[in-house]
Every structure is written in structure tokens, then in C-alpha cells.
Design a protein around this nucleic acid. Structure first.
Length: 620
RNA sequence: GCCCCCGUAGCUCAGUGGAUAGAGCGACGGUUUCCUAAACCGUAGGCCGCAGGUUCGAUCCCUGCCGGGGGUACCA
């Protein structure tokens, strides 16, 4: 970090984004339409209609357009074009319109109303953003309390590639929502009480190695976990392929059943199992924390499954008492879709609870203690059905506050290897998260081999930022819901939609300012007028001022890839600007204006990357 | 069987009701006495899986089909 995104002081937050201001003007125009009886537009119709005010596809159509006239034409019993004329006329009279936008021209095509931002307004807005600590991004009018539940690894086994998306996407959403002005509560719902502990307890008693545990607790626990898992899950063909495993399996024919028994004992409060659990936990947590520090991911809370364990029996009793859950085949479940469909199980036949039970207890606890407006579960898409059932059960349960909280499963796809199968090592093992990061950093380091003027320590720091940034960015820039193919080569490309390209753009900004010996603080204090006269400056300035619009869109659908797409577009515009126009070598007042635009671009890129949890470097 | 997701350029992916469907890689061509050329500019490359439907307008919404993936009562 260069520290340059700390605030210049003194700027107002501004009157909202250009899109906000134009939507307000369209709202005025549409209400006028209704008041004059031209077209019935109810207050409830407005939001959807105003969503049709957005940036144009191409600069030749202007900066923003409104396309609602076509859809409304039938309702108004007019030709779309005529209605567009009516709207455009009222638009020009809307309060605040003419200060920001040029008079709308005649509607284009079937009824597009195209609008161009006035040059003076653009200059004023970009100059204001320059001295604004929020870079021109407005705060939300109505802050909400939003719980972001993400990462949630199972402790007692190493974090692996499967945890990266939840961790990176969740962290980014939390940062973004907080910057927007919401009250964000991050919670890591650790898997610290599940069947894997039954496996470890059972395995420790049979295969545990005290010396190995002392030397490297996670490695030893991981070894035991994997071994027991293979034993308990072994299919006949696995046993046929692995004589050693087969021998073990013959020795422990009841492994699967006994593991579940140990889990149940732990849950029932068996002192010996509890003692083992307490013995294993600290090492597990320390190991996980180490990775989070490296990823620069932080949580407000770490309320794992074990935290909710005391409430589970009460949850089941309550569900039964209210007639929602009942006994079936020895287990207890909620029949959501009728008796013939599989129920949502909250207690197993052996008395152990399930993650459904914990999740229900967690919802109740969060409602009681945090009273949130939204709870986001950043969990992979394969658990979609679980969350459907969970949310449906929670609503039927009728907890206080449940009717006003939005429970949202923020689903994401699987990380695949080159072969299109879930990402694995060549040997077929799950890829550990730490070694994944190491390899990304190592490859980034190799790429800096030719760099002059960087000592080894500096190169290491750059490689860490670039390597980890590449991995995070590759994940965030994909449409969340689709699977994506993991490729070090692609994510470390210096061109294209990668973290490195954005980081490089930031480094070039640094280069210009450093080369010019620019005193940034003094530049901020002088609050210069930025005048985007050249089309490339204009295009860059407009993109910068869309930052707030993009964050609003990201929040609406929990889609960080909208932010990465905008950053990529922004960095591209900067590169085009930088390439075509002299900055240090042009005359005043252009020189200061362009320097300010440069500096602001750098701060905006840095802030945008920061909201993705990605750092930047001064040189690369 | 039922439910969910995905089929867009050779490859990896954006775009999910608007204007001539976009990037990167790969291919071909251009730009450096000049602030980081790890860059920029350009060319070629597409029945947006198939067939119907809704709409002024469909890659996007609905229905069916084909192909791929995932889920589907005691793992999470």
C-alpha cells in the first residue's frame, strides 16, 4: 500500500451520482406525465421504470439513456416516439436537470431518450470527487444492518481450494457494503463441531501420534482426518485399489458407525471427547488465522457450530412443540413439501444434530442479538436446496424479526481444473489453500525476474501482492454463479481483466507523479479544477464518476464481478488517456488538470481494488 | 424420477428486455528520439445449443427438445 488513498479533506459528498440525478429528473417527468393524464404511472411502477435509465452502450448515443417510453407507449395509447417527446419535454423542466445535463435532443430510433452530461457539470463533479475522501461515492440514504456469513471452513483439516471463493467473495461484499455506509457484521461460522471431530477423536485414539501432534498439530490432525474419512467412506473399488486401506478396513469394520457414535458422544457432553476437542481446537484456529492474515481477511465474529451447541436441543424441542417437526424413521425433521418428500432433518436417529439444526439456532441468535435487515450466506451453489429448506423452516418457525429480515443464499460455482473437473492436484488430492497461494506468489515472483531497480525483498513484497491479488481477482471477476477454470497463467496475464493489469495501471500513476516530483498533499489542498477537454479525458472522468453507480449495482445482486468489469474498463480508459496525452510535458493549466485526473484515477483504482481485498504496489 | 445451474468467437469468459452481441488469450498488422511498450491502436474470427411462443424489440422472459454439471433423509 502506498497510503495515498487516505483522505484529502474538505469535500462534500455531492448530490449523488449522475445516474441518481438523472433518475430523479425522470421520476419528475414521469409523475408529470401521470398528473397530466398522459399516461398512468403509479408510484409503485416508478422503480422499475427508473431502472431503465442507465449508461448508453456507446458514446455516440450520449452518456445516459432512458428507454421506458417504448414500454409505456401502449399503456398511454400513443406512439412510442410521441411519448418519448412528452417525457423529454418534462425532463428538461425537472429541477436539477439543466444544471447537470444538456437539453435532451429528439428521441432516437423507436424512442430512446439520450442525455449528455454538460461539460461544466462533469468538470465540477470530477473536481469535487478529487477533494472528496469518498471519491465522489455517495453513502446510502438508508443504512441497513447486514450480516455476511462467509468462509466457514471446517477446522481440524487444512483449508483448501474449496474455501477460496466463499472467503474472497464474502470478504469483498463485506468491504463494499461497509463502504456504501451499511452496518456490516461479518461472521465466520466455523465447522468446529461436526462429524469431522468424531472422525478425529475416533482416529486419534487408534492412530494418533503424540510427537507428530506436538510438532505440527494441523498436519497430524489432517492426516488422521483424511485416513478416517477414507476408511469410513471407502467403496469396494477403493479397497480393491489400496491393500493398505483394505487391511485397515478389515481391522476396523465398524469405522463409519463408530465415528458417528463419537460425534454423538461429543454432542452429549462426554467429558473425554470434550477434552480432546478442547485440546485440538487452539492449534486448528491458529492455523486458520494465519491464512486469513495472509489473505487480509478479518471477521467481527467467529461464532462456529460449537457456540450454538447448547441451543440445539431447545431448537428441536421448540419445533416439535409447535408441530413443525416430527419423528420419522428414528430421526426428527420438518416436512416442508408434504409427507412424501424428504423432510428437513434437524436431529439424526442417533441423537446427533445436523448443520440444519445449527443453522436454525444461528438464525435465532442473530435475530435476537443483531436484529439484521439482511443475512447473506456466501456458500457454494450445491447447497441451494439446504438454504431453501432452511429459510422456509425459519419463516414457519415464526421467530421475532424473521418477517423483516432478508435471508439470501449468495451462491457461487465450483473451481475447476484444466480438465473441467473440480480442481485437484495431479495425484487427485484436494489442493491446499496455502500451497495454492504459494504457487501464485512464486509465479508472480518469476515474472519480475527482469525488473531493474528492485531488490529481492521488494520483489518478494510485490510478488506477494500481485500473486495473491491475481488469485482473488480471478475468482471475483467471474460471474459468481458459474463454475470457473483455475489457471495461474491466465490470472497472471498483464493484459486483460486481471489484478495485475489494474495494479500496473496504479503503478504507472505512481510513476508519473514520482517522475514529476509532485507533492500530492499540496495538489489535494490546491483543489484544482479538472477540465476534461479531450475525449479521452472526458471518457476517463465519466468512468470515475460511475464508481458509486457500480457499487449500487454490486449491492443489488451481490455481484463483485460488476466492480471488476468497471475497474477493467476504467484502467483501460486510463491507459488510453496516458498513452495518447502528455501529462508532465503539457502546459498549464492542462498539466495540473491532467495530473489531478491521474492522481484521482490512481486513488479510485486503489480503492476499488481495496474493496475486493486486493492490494497495490508502487512499482512493478 | 424430481429440483437447480450452465450451453455466446478456436480457447477462457463478460453481457440477462433495448441501439451494429463484447473482452482477454491465440492469429495477423501497426505504434517507442516522448511520463513504466508488463502498454496502446487496428484486422480477421459469431444461425448467442435447437424449435416454438410472449413483446414495438429476445442472447436475456415462457414452453418443449438436445447436450453438460450439480443436488435429491440422517456429511457440511
Amino acid at each position: 500500500m502506498t497510503g495515498a488513498d487516505t483522505a484529502p479533506s474538505g469535500a462534500p459528498g455531492g448530490a449523488g451520482t449522475f445516474r441518481d440525478r438523472l433518475r430523479a429528473a425522470f421520476a419528475h417527468a414521469l409523475r408529470g406525465l401521470a398528473a397530466d393524464g398522459v399516461c398512468p404511472v403509479g408510484a409503485e411502477d416508478l422503480p422499475a421504470l427508473l431502472e431503465q435509465v442507465r449508461e448508453t452502450a456507446e458514446a455516440k448515443f450520449g452518456d445516459y439513456s432512458g428507454t421506458m417510453a417504448m414500454g409505456l407507449a401502449k399503456k398511454a395509447a400513443r406512439k412510442p416516439r410521441d411519448l418519448a417527446v412528452e417525457i423529454a419535454r418534462r425532463l428538461a423542466d425537472a429541477p436539477g436537470y439543466s444544471a447537470a445535463f444538456a437539453p435532451p435532443g429528439d428521441p432516437v430510433g423507436p424512442g430512446f431518450i439520450n442525455v449528455r452530461v454538460r461539460d461544466e457539470a462533469l468538470s465540477a463533479a470530477i473536481s469535487a470527487a478529487f477533494v472528496d475522501e469518498r471519491l465522489g461515492v455517495p453513502r446510502v440514504a438508508a443504512p441497513a444492518t447486514i450480516v455476511v456469513d462467509f468462509s466457514s471452513p471446517n477446522v481440524a483439516k487444512p483449508m483448501h481450494v474449496g474455501h477460496i471463493r466463499s472467503t474472497v467473495i464474502g470478504d469483498s461484499l463485506a468491504r463494499l457494503l461497509a463502504f456504501r455506509g451499511h452496518r456490516v457484521i461479518t461472521d465466520n461460522h466455523l465447522g468446529d463441531w461436526g462429524t469431522q471431530f468424531g472422525m478425529i477423536i475416533w482416529g486419534w485414539r487408534r492412530f494418533g501420534d503424540e510427537a507428530a501432534l506436538a510438532a505440527d498439530p494441523t498436519a497430524e490432525l489432517g492426516r488422521i482426518y483424511r485416513l478416517v474419512r477414507r476408511l469410513a467412506d471407502a467403496a469396494p473399488e477403493d479397497l480393491a485399489a489400496d491393500p493398505q486401506l483394505a487391511a485397515l478396513a478389515a481391522e476396523h469394520p465398524g469405522a463409519a458407525r463408530e465415528v458417528l457414535l463419537e460425534t454423538a458422544r461429543l454432542h452429549e457432553g462426554d467429558p473425554e471427547n470434550r477434552a480432546l476437542w478442547e485440546r485440538f481446537m487452539p492449534a486448528c484456529l491458529a492455523d486458520i488465522e494465519k491464512l486469513y492474515r495472509r489473505l487480509d481477511v478479518h471477521f467481527d465474529h467467529r461464532l462456529g457450530e460449537s457456540f450454538f451447541q447448547p441451543f440445539l436441543a431447545g431448537v428441536v424441542d421448540d419445533l416439535v412443540a409447535r408441530g413443525l417437526a416430527r419423528e420419522s424413521r428414528g430421526a426428527i425433521g420438518v416436512f416442508l413439501d408434504g409427507d412424501d418428500k424428504p423432510p428437513f432433518l434437524v436431529r439424526k436417529g442417533d441423537g446427533a444434530f445436523l448443520y440444519a439444526t445449527t443453522d436454525l439456532a444461528t438464525i435465532r441468535w442473530r435475530l435476537e442479538h443483531w436484529n439484521p435487515d439482511r443475512i447473506l450466506y456466501v456458500v457454494d451453489h450445491r447447497q441451494g436446496q439446504h438454504f431453501e429448506h432452511l429459510f422456509a423452516t425459519a419463516k414457519r418457525w415464526g421467530l421475532p424479526g424473521i418477517e423483516r429480515v432478508a435471508l439470501e443464499h449468495v451462491a457461487f460455482g465450483t473451481v475447476l481444473g484444466d480438465d473441467g473437473r473440480p480442481f485437484k492436484t495431479r495425484a487427485g488430492d484436494t489442493v491446499g489453500l496455502e500451497s495454492l497461494l504459494d504457487e501464485g506468489v512464486e509465479r508472480a515472483f518469476a515474472l519480475t525476474a527482469g525488473d531493474e531497480g528492485l531488490d529481492d525483498a521488494e520483489r518478494r513484497r510485490v510478488a506477494e501482492t500481485v500473486g495473491i491479488g491475481a488469485i482473488k481477482y480471478a475468482d471475483l471477476c467471474q460471474n459468481r454463479t458459474t463454475d470457473y477454470v483455475f489457471s495461474y497463467d491466465k490470472m497472471l496475464e498483464l493484459k486483460g481483466n486481471t489484478a495485475a493489469y489494474m495494479q500496473y495501471a496504479v503503478a504507472r500513476v505512481e510513476g508519473v507523479l514520482e517522475k514529476g516530483g509532485i507533492d500530492r498533499e499540496a495538489l489535494w489542498r490546491s483543489a484544482p479544477a479538472i477540465v476534461p477537454a479531450d475525449p479521452r479525458e472526458r471518457s476517463l472522468a465519466l468512468a470515475i464518476l460511475r464508481f458509486g453507480e457500480v457499487l449500487e449495482d454490486v449491492e443489488a445482486d451481490s455481484r463483485p464481478n460488476l466492480l471488476t468489469a468497471w475497474l477493467y474498463d476504467l484502467a483501460g480508459r486510463y491507459s488510453a488517456f496516458y498513452d495518447a496525452l502528455p501529462i508532465l510535458k503539457c502546459a498549464e493549466p492542462e498539466r495540473t488538470s491532467r495530473l489531478a485526473l491521474c492522481d484521482l484515477t490512481g486513488r479510485v483504482l486503489r480503492k476499488g481494488l481495496g474493496l475486493l481485498g486486493i492490494g497495490t504496489v508502487r512499482t512493478m
